[in-house]
C-alpha cells in the first residue's frame, strides 16, 4: 500500500468503515508508515469534529446538567 492509498484508508478507518480484511492491511501499513502515518490519522479525526459541527445544536433538558454536576460532586465526596 502506498501513502496515497493509506490516506484513503485512514479516512475510512476513523469513521469505522473499514471492512475486517481491510483493517488488517491498514494496520500493517500503519506500522510501515510510522509517525507520518499516525500524524495523518490524527488529522483525519477532524472529520469527526466536522460532522458533529455540521449539525444544528440541539437543546438539552435543563435537568441534565444539574444531574450531571450532582453526580460529579457525589463522586468527589465518595
Amino acid at each position: 500500500m502506498n501513502f496515497n492509498e493509506f490516506q484513503n484508508q485512514a479516512r475510512l478507518y476513523v469513521i469505522g468503515a473499514l471492512e475486517p480484511e481491510e483493517l488488517e492491511e491498514f494496520e500493517t501499513a500503519r506500522t510501515k508508515f510510522g509517525k507520518k502515518g499516525e500524524e495523518f490519522i490524527s488529522k483525519c479525526y477532524a472529520l469527526h469534529e466536522a460532522f458533529a459541527l455540521s449539525l444544528r445544536p440541539a437543546k438539552a433538558s435543563s435537568a441534565i446538567k444539574e444531574r450531571l454536576m450532582a453526580m460529579v460532586k457525589a463522586k468527589q465526596q465518595a
Binding site: F51, A52, L53, L55, R56, P57, A58, K59, A60, I64
Partner: peptide
C-alpha cells in the same frame, strides 16, 4: 458543547 454533542 452540550448542544453539539446532543445533536450528534
Amino acid at each position: 458543547y452540550n448542544g453539539i454533542l446532543k445533536a450528534l
